[in-house]
Write a protein that binds this DNA or RNA. Structure first.
Lengths: 348, 348
DNA sequence: CTTGACAATGCTACCGGTGGCATTTAGTAT
DNA sequence: ATACTAAATGCCACCGGTAGCATTGTCAAG
């Protein structure tokens, strides 16, 4: 069996290519870097030789000379492995197309030394840029530090911002609004929401999108039907239990994410409340669990992979500096309602 | 606000350290690489300066000169994001301690060009070594190719092998055997198993461990109570449905993994079969879902993080070449039974 | 026919380390 | 004291690229 590449045979370098093409290495370098000041003819000649010998410039040498690494970093904290996995695959897709590699870096976003930690990470491997996932992406101090140190980055966030060069956005507000409309269409009137931590932008977006739409449709949420959770499963259980054991029970609970929605489901089960018969439950994210849980959750699906690709492309555009267009392109993504089995018409 | 590191201020290099310590850069290099041929006194002096100036050698320069990259690659395919996330965190833990970075590389393990793909990956970034996750870790052709190309690697697998220098192992057989004993202790007699694809080593280990122990305890499984699944959720639903609609129903189903066990649970729900009342269900892996599903699954927990650390340490040992001890150390991990709500005594 | 301007290409000094070999220093046997 | 050897350290070429500047070539304007 043969492979295209044989690491045993001495690696060909830019010098070899230069010699074979009968030009100087400087010219080969120009071709590699798509410099405009190369004769069309020479360019073709060199490119042909490069292709013929399957030459790939050495990233380390390139990096050493140009202080670049062709390495992108992914900063995340989130315990939601499914989300991260999806992101990674999306980023890697476009990374490998464009000659970059992805280095992953989990961290605790609310630790005091987040900044130092991340900066060290960048510095250790001379990373060319960073993609930052929520909730770390919401830490402005981090972004500011990166700005100060001239480290290119792209943040994935919920909500809208004008700084399109630094964000890939998800219109969670609109999606939450859709959820509100859907719930109203089911004739429910006693509606509760378990929000995420309201210091998170994503939580606020969803919360506001939902409650505002609800109000505008004539069903403003009662104060005691709005509770703030932690986005954790356990929090869903606890708050679900609380909502479902009060005298005045809601007939539908919208949770800020699927984790908590699953928790609510668990609480309902414990309390012997039928879903969706006596209670409808909705989540947000459409993570894997959402469809595995019984009954499967009605939720909102974000095009996570797409966001990842947007982010990678934008970041690479920033790193490479050409194509200013791509840098400022508005990358906003629109999550969609997914109706499954955890919701139903109001029963009396 | 100040950070330890300021990327704006010119980076200090080995030359600076050499000058400050009053020695040649070669000596500093020796200190960095822990060469034994440095005087104790000079060594301390240099180390002190290094610490004082927070000097970190440039990976690219180092790599260029020594043809190393301080980058480790993680090869995986598996759709189980939770598993991958856990592995990543484990690997990264030890990586960062030892000065390495992790580059991730998802791929389709049964594609024809797996070998070329992986080799390209290694070559592109001059990776120092590879950690290979199942099922890609079971592809011998891949390992062989890596051997031929002198790429260090460690494979994570289920089962045992003597080549302790190339594997981190999980004793799934023993764990499956424990599961068998547990089930027998619950007085069940009609026992079914949904295996994984039997061309996977892990599936065979679990299958054999379970059925052999069952037989030795006097409850050999009937042929029609052994069915082969794909490890996917859907497969669990389908096979669960099949087993539970036959005339002769099992009172317990052991699935090769939690994904399929969840599928079985779903099937039971559809068929209005109570779990664990009428049917007990067990899984394997203890992935996140196992505890979220209702009822929570009795399953087997692998110390995944630990395996990841073992793998990273072994790989680094191979890469660095010193410490032959660590290279051949037997890294076998023992998964444990986790009893939750999906199993119960046989009812009549 | 010169000269200038611009395009195309080459020369070469780095980038920040490593490693082979030379050199210096110190310790030991004779 | 002298020669010899091992330990400690320095010198310098090199890893494979990039980039500033020099050089060569071409064509049009003067």
């Amino acid at each position: 069996m043969r492979y295209n590449i044989d690491m045993n045979q001495p690696k060909i370098t830019i010098n070899d290519i230069a010699r074979l093409a009968g030009v100087s290495k400087r010219t080969v370098s120009r071709v590699i870097n798509q410099s405009p000041k190369v004769g069309e003819l020479t360019k073709q000649k060199v490119e042909q030789i490069i292709a013929e010998y399957n030459y790939v410039p050495d990233k380390q040498a390139r990096g050493l000379a140009s202080s670049r690494s062709y390495l992108l970093g992914l900063i995340y904290d989130q315990p939601d492995a499914l989300y991260i996995d999806e992101i990674q695959r999306g980023v890697i897709d476009t990374c490998s197309q464009r000659g970059y590699e992805l280095v992953v870096h989990p961290c605790k976003y609310k630790s005091d030394d987040l900044n130092t930690n991340v900066l060290n990470f960048v510095r250790r491997s001379k990373l060319d840029g960073l993609i930052i996932l929520p909730p770390a992406s919401e830490v402005d101090a981090l972004a500011q530090m990166l700005d100060e140190n001239i480290v290119p980055y792209v943040r994935l966030v919920s909500g809208h911002t004008e700084a399109t060069d630094k964000f890939v956005m998800s219109n969670d507000r609109h999606a939450a609004s859709d959820m509100a409309k859907f719930i109203v269409s089911l004739k429910h009137e006693k509606i509760a929401m378990i929000t995420g931590p309201l210091n998170y932008r994503s939580s606020r977006e969803r919360y506001e999108g939902f409650t505002e739409t609800m109000a505008s449709l004539g069903y403003p949420l009662e104060a005691n039907f709005i509770v703030e959770g932690s986005n954790q499963y356990e929090s869903g259980i606890e708050l679900g239990r609380k909502l479902l054991t009060s005298d005045d029970k809601p007939s539908v609970i919208f949770a800020n994410n699927d984790e908590m929605a699953s928790g609510v489901l668990k609480a309902a089960f414990e309390l012997d409340i039928k879903v969706p018969g006596q209670l409808s439950i909705c989540g947000f994210d459409d993570n894997l669990m959402a469809s595995r849980v019984i009954p499967a959750l009605t939720t909102i699906k974000r095009p996570v992979r797409q966001m990842a690709k947007y982010a990678a492309n934008k970041l690479i555009a920033k790193v490479e500096g050409n194509n200013p267009q791509a840098i400022i392109q508005n990358c906003t993504v629109h999550p969609e309602l997914v109706i499954r089995d955890s919701t139903g018409f109001k029963q009396d």
